[in-house]
């Protein structure tokens, strides 16, 4: 193998900002892909020594152990309040929250909306897999209509459980938001696009423009009861219809141009 490596150029390997600790996620879960993208960006921006990561309660409760950066885990839903406290106390640090749909869009809705509306210089990566993963597949605020979960066993009925909540569309109404984009990582081609979106959300903070958030539509093969490949297809066919991909807010690109940042 070493002979082989000598004749080759390294294209892609584990980013330095990951701790190397094995992820605790189920096989095929998209969390790991998004972790890797964030770590690559921390490496590329040289932010490892400046980053403070706030993990949520949920499957990614251990996220702070997977990254080789300083971090903490917030109470359920409070990541953006914790991050606000960090950023206000240490504006020179790069503060990142990583949150799921139950955390960010149900119990933590107030924190999400107010941190965004204040334009906190924080970058948030929001994993939307339409289900509560860690607690075993209960209905999430983003569960699709008709979708069966352990607490909507007859399928989500809007008369009973209301509608899936659209966070990116809400972000659009908040003046403090500098960047908001919804992406997915279910196909290889999606992954560089998702990385570019998260990069813009990094710039929202780094160029002092405002709050940056990227929603990543993700699979939960375990709680959806599908194999990982099938779950990806299900996401493409169902979730994207409910949660249209695209850029919802972008005040960053212009500032990047002004400042000559590529």
């Amino acid at each position: 193998m070493s002979e082989q490596v000598k004749d080759a150029i390294l294209l892609a390997s584990m980013p330095k900002s990951l701790s190397g600790k094995e992820f605790t996620y189920c096989p095929g879960c998209h969390h790991g892909i998004v972790h890797r993208l964030i770590a690559e960006l921390i490496d590329e921006f040289g932010l490892k020594e400046k980053t403070l990561l706030v993990a949520p309660v949920g499957c990614s409760v251990f996220a702070y152990e997977f990254f080789d950066v300083d971090g903490t885990v917030a109470a359920h839903g409070r990541a953006l309040a914790v991050a606000t406290g960090m950023k206000r106390a240490r504006p020179d640090m790069f503060v990142l929250t990583y949150q799921g749909d139950g955390d960010l869009a149900a119990i933590g809705t107030a924190e999400t909306i107010h941190a965004a509306n204040r334009g906190e210089r924080i970058t948030t990566v929001f994993i939307n897999n339409a289900v509560y993963g860690m607690t075993g597949g209960q209905m999430a605020p983003t569960t699709l209509l008709g979708m069966k979960t352990t607490t909507s066993p007859y399928g989500r009925d809007p008369k009973r459980e209301g509608y899936p909540i659209h966070i990116m569309e809400i972000m659009k109404a908040l003046p403090g938001v500098a960047y908001a984009e919804r992406v997915k990582v279910s196909k290889p081609q999606d992954v560089p696009k998702a990385k570019m979106a998260i990069k813009k959300a990094f710039y929202a903070q780094l160029l002092d423009v405002g709050f940056g958030i990227v929603e990543v539509l993700s699979t939960c093969p375990t709680n959806w009861g599908m194999d990982p490949v099938e779950a990806g297809k299900w996401l493409d066919e169902n979730m994207v219809k409910e949660f249209p991909l695209g850029v919802y807010v972008d005040k960053v690109t212009e500032v990047m141009k002004e400042k000559g940042v590529k």
């Binding site: 403070l52 706030v54 903490t72 917030a74 109470a75 409070r78 309040a81 914790v82 991050a83 606000t84 406290g85 960090m86 950023k87 206000r88 106390a89 240490r90 640090m93 107030a110 924190e111 107010h114």
Partner: peptide
Amino acid sequence: VSTVNMMYGASSVGV
């Protein structure tokens, strides 16, 4: 609720 969690964040960075 946010107040106490903001305090958690600020305290964790040492102020």
